[in-house]
Design a protein around this nucleic acid. Structure first.
Length: 594
RNA sequence: GGACCCGUAGCUCAGCUGGAUAGAGCGCUGCCCUCCGAAGGCAGAGGUCGUACGUUCGAAUCGUAUCGGGUCCGCCA
């Protein structure tokens, strides 16, 4: 048991059960053992007396007193005192508290792993950008949040699959094919001007970015002039559109994967919307829902207070989303007879359910917030309640440089691609910074601040703590030899000299890591990991700084071997916990600051 | 008109799913380096947690209402 909070909770529950034999298990389950806010209150506190007082018909304070007396008998507890409205504060025997250090050193980076996920199969879908252009900074947040969430869920025992849904079936992909075709015609030397070409494109020429030039060149190399007319003009679309579209999507997805790889993100599965349509899976699913009586032809009311100009009532194929908690029934067919995005997305989520996932987590942009309720309804309907769908919404990121906002326009220059961002500040800084805000809170990404070497930059502050740990361990290895300072050796070292308050503060923080991981995973909030690491780093730097005022608190004391080894164990455990946390964030720890 | 998200210190944000005197960084004020651990450190001021009711032993946290900001609202994805 490496989670001493869980261990103490079990002891409290046992003591409570002995005190109140008939206690409802549901109440016992509400017992918590949590860190105290104030060290003066001890190491931990439990609410056991307060949650069970009513059912027991006793006053919380009396029950707390009785519980405190009972807990005093525990081998791990030095002192148990009733406090406040019915808390029982626990001060652990230093031996019990320090025991987390060897536990960490033995567990290594696996420290904090848990079983709360119970092996449940969960699919985390994230990024899922249109393959119509390079990934930009908006996609970046979803990529980092999704990836970190997947790692976090895996750490607490979920069976996680990471997935990317390629939106390659809609009108935008047709527009992309036309745009690539334009670059192809240019590559073979068409006499057409861009305006002349654009005039012939249904819906106009939409994607004018330079990133399609290479694709046009590649098409020309592979197909010569066969995709154009004899005069290098626009051929009938059926002669080229499949070829151009497929080539372009493949090329864009290759670029997307490269960008993701540069960010350290690698999904396990890439699913194609187009494949669902082509295979007929989408239509089959719609018919299945129709068989369940969940589809009908009907007319929707226009949204109140905001009627579109071109609104006219029209019968549509509708899914009975309102039966599953949505506000309005949702259309599945466009007026041209093709499926709406939602229709295909139902089929896609049904496919995930068929593949055995019982928890579907979609990491979406906040502009998709209005889409969540219909999707959740669809998942409920398709799985007959066996699967649940959750959404993690990522709010917009504003990029700031030199105090000035960087505009997000697809037109020249000011478009911030994911690659630009990584090149500018580095992969680890991007990832860490993206996790320093709750996903559903807006974020300002200050390009200058994330590379600043100051305390208010958590990336630096946490890495600096790890580098300092490693530096001390290197010096320790010089002094005592590498064998003596290896984790396995330090795990066996006597620790009773670790008694100074700043040392205990670090130990208490380290002890809280498993419960922090579990809570973050259950709340689907990977940003909590970043905040934990910042707090741990702060505790560690404080300990380091004590050495400046009081030389006896410096880590390496050549003439006091036992003290030094104990401190090295503390430092090695700290470094391990930092690495454990950074691993969840997908950030590489550094050995030294440069 | 409706749905979802957000309102916490001057600023940027945490707050462990209902717990004790609401925290951190920046900024501000005052101290602390001849050198050996100052890319800093210590201390302090600063908040009726948007507002009002309610739920209960107890609310920043849950509910209702309301104000303010954001996102979205049939054939975009």
């Amino acid at each position: 048991m490496t989670d001493i909070f869980a261990a103490m909770r079990a002891e409290v529950q046992a003591a409570l059960a002995a005190l109140l034999p008939g206690l409802d298990p549901a109440i016992a389950a509400r017992v918590e053992v949590s860190p105290t806010r104030d060290p003066a209150h001890g190491d931990m506190a439990t609410n056991a007396a307060m949650v069970s007082a009513r059912a027991a018909g006793r006053k919380p304070a009396d029950l707390a007193a009785a519980l405190a007396t009972a807990l005093t008998a525990s081998a791990a507890i030095a002192e148990a005192t009733p406090a406040g409205p019915g808390f029982v504060n626990l001060r652990l025997r230093p031996v019990a508290l320090r025991a987390v250090l060897p536990a960490i050193l033995r567990a290594g980076i696996a420290y904090g792993d848990g079983a709360a996920g119970g092996g449940q199969r969960v699919n985390v879908e994230y990024v899922s950008a249109n393959p119509t252009g390079p990934l930009h900074i908006g996609h970046c947040r979803g990529a980092v949040v999704g990836d970190a969430l997947a790692r976090l869920l895996a750490k607490v025992g979920y069976d996680v699959t990471r997935e990317y849904y390629i939106n390659d079936a809609g009108a935008q992909v047709a527009a992309l094919a036309w745009a690539a075709y334009w670059r192809y015609l240019q590559a073979i030397g068409t006499p057409l001007t861009e305006e002349e070409f654009a005039a012939e494109v249904p819906g106009g020429l939409q994607y004018r970015g330079e990133y399609l030039i290479d694709i046009g060149t590649a098409l020309a190399r592979a197909h010569g002039e066969r995709l154009a007319t004899a005069t290098k003009g626009i051929a009938a679309p059926e002669r080229w559109i499949d070829t151009v579209r497929d080539h372009t999507i493949a090329a864009m997805m290759a670029a997307v994967r490269e960008d993701l790889a540069a960010l350290g993100v690698a999904q396990d599965v890439f699913s194609s919307e187009r494949a669902l349509v082509v295979s007929g899976a989408a239509d089959t699913l719609i018919e299945r829902l129709r068989g369940d009586g969940l589809i009908y032809e009907g007319v929707l009311e226009p949204p109140k207070g905001k009627t579109p100009d071109d609104w006219e009532p029209r019968p549509q194929t509708l899914f009975r989303a309102t039966q599953f908690g949505d506000d309005v029934d949702r259309p599945l067919r466009k007026s041209d007879g093709s499926n709406t995005y939602f229709a295909n997305d139902i089929a896609y989520h049904a496919d995930k359910i068929d593949r055995g996932f019982t928890l579907l987590i979609d990491v979406l942009g906040a502009d998709h917030g209005g889409y969540v309720s219909r999707l959740r309804a669809a998942v409920k309907a398709v799985s007959h309640g066996a699967a649940t769908m959750e959404a993690v919404l990522c709010q917009i990121v504003h990029v700031v440089k030199n105090g000035q906002p960087v505009r997000m326009s697809k037109r020249a220059g000011s478009y911030v691609t994911l690659r630009d961002l990584i090149d500018e500040v580095g992969r680890d800084a991007v990832r860490f910074t993206m996790l320093t805000r709750k996903a559903d809170a807006q974020m300002e990404f200050d390009l200058d601040a994330v590379v600043a070497q100051t305390r208010d930059n958590p990336v630096f502050y946490v890495q600096y703590a790890h580098a300092r740990c490693r530096s001390v361990l290197r010096a320790g290895a010089e002094m005592f030899g590498p064998a003596a300072t290896a984790d396995a050796a330090l795990a066996a070292v006597p620790l009773d000299t670790l008694a100074a308050e700043p040392e205990l503060a670090v130990i208490r923080r380290l002890a809280a890591w498993p419960r922090t991981v579990e809570a973050a995973a259950l709340a689907r909030e990977p940003h909590r990991i970043a905040f934990f690491l910042y707090d741990l780093a702060a505790d560690f730097h404080m300990l380091w700084n004590r050495g400046k005022d009081d030389a006896t608190l410096r880590f390496l004391q050549p003439d006091r071997h036992a003290d030094t080894m104990a401190r090295l164990a503390l430092i090695a455990a700290t470094a391990t916990a930092i690495r454990s946390g950074l691993a969840v964030m997908g950030v590489d720890p550094v050995e030294e600051m440069r």
